[in-house]
């Protein structure tokens, strides 16, 4: 049985933070220089009382403008910013959206590889006959994990949610997956406190790194060099494995959609894979790195702009926190 991506929608919170806003906060830093390398000039951030669940609801409602919510028989919500330890955000989302009580609903905790992982689970559910129409929702509010004094991360990340309908009816066919994990890199992208190993500590020490970014162990920490090193070493071989898993050569793939981490990294990967500028996409200048939503948002924008068209084979590849990576080919 074929499994297909039927539709994609996304939602961005109303509040935006521009690089000019950041420059006025960080007067001793050169925001423009950093931004040119990262490729982000504005990002959306959730409001103080706005959570990943709220963003998820709005993204799903946009999807339902064109698709019938009554068809949904499974909800997979991917987030690392859940409203609660328990219950799952997916259960509350099911209720808010009025999705059938006969639908299954689970959260998965993944970051930048989250869309590909969620898609692989949805494909499994449809192929196993458990589900016919799976609602995937990626919803993330990393801004709430980042210390206000951490310019390095504030400049990169933005908040967003995306909603994807995965179905047994023919639209964009989902091919074979390559998934992988290397937990040795866990400490390179982490929020150390707040779980059960290290409880949230309101009195924990504020540290300042050599770039003058401030954070505490309650906040997100990212060793950007190590993450870049991991991606630069790992992802070219993941792409090769994905091509092999789908019996394709590099030339037979029309377009490559990588997790939109930052401009420098995506350009670097493209160079290593010898991709020309019209074979890959980078488009987060106005939204930032939205973690698990970067690939669905990029896919939607490419479809809307006609950059990718019916019949195109598109390789999707997500990677990051964990370390974790996932890749698949979709035929539009």
């Amino acid at each position: 049985m074929g499994v297909y991506i039927k539709n994609v929608a996304y939602y961005l919170p109303e509040v935006t933070v521009s690089n000019e806003d950041l420059q006025s906060e960080f007067k001793d830093r050169d925001v423009g220089k950093m931004a040119n390398k990262i490729g982000v000039f504005r990002r959306h951030v959730a409001g103080p009382d706005e959570t990943a669940l709220d963003l998820a609801e709005k993204a799903a409602k946009k999807l339902f403008e064109e698709n019938d919510k009554d068809d949904i028989d499974f909800v997979i919500l991917c987030t690392q910013s859940p409203d609660y330890y328990l219950p799952t955000t997916a259960c509350i989302l099911q209720h808010r959206l009025g999705i059938s009580k006969n639908a299954g609903a689970i959260d998965i905790n993944q970051g930048c590889s989250g869309f590909v992982y969620s898609l692989s689970l949805a494909k499994g559910l449809v192929e196993a006959g458990v589900s016919k129409n799976v609602l995937l929702v990626m919803a993330e509010t990393y801004s709430k994990h980042i210390n206000e004094g951490d310019l390095g991360n504030r400049i990169i990340f933005g908040d967003a949610a995306s909603a994807i309908l995965v179905s047994h009816t023919q639209t964009m066919q989902v091919g074979n997956f390559v998934l992988g994990t290397d937990g040795e890199g866990a400490n390179n992208l982490i929020v150390p406190n707040g779980g059960l190993r290290n409880r949230f500590d309101s009195a924990c020490e504020v540290t300042t790194d050599q770039r003058n970014d401030r954070r505490t162990d309650n906040d997100l920490f990212m060793n950007g060099s190590e993450i870049f090193y991991f991606a630069g070493k790992q992802i070219p071989s993941v792409v090769e494995q994905t091509l092999a898993a789908n019996n394709l050569t590099k030339g037979e793939v029309d377009f490559y959609l990588f997790h939109q981490a930052n401009k420098y990294m995506i350009d670097f990967l493209a160079k290593r894979l010898k991709l020309s500028a019209d074979q890959y996409y980078f488009d987060i200048e106005d939204i930032g790195n939205t973690v698990s939503s970067t690939i669905p948002i990029a896919l939607k924008r490419c479809l809307d702009k006609g950059i990718i068209q019916k019949g195109d084979k598109v390789l999707l590849c997500g990677f990051g926190v964990g370390y974790s990576w996932g890749s698949v080919v979709v035929e539009i």
Binding site: G224, F228, Y229
Partner: peptide
């Protein structure tokens, strides 16, 4: 080179 440039060279 900044830190990303060093990583690119190392890779």
């Amino acid at each position: 080179l900044d830190s990303m440039g060093v990583v690119a060279l190392a890779v």
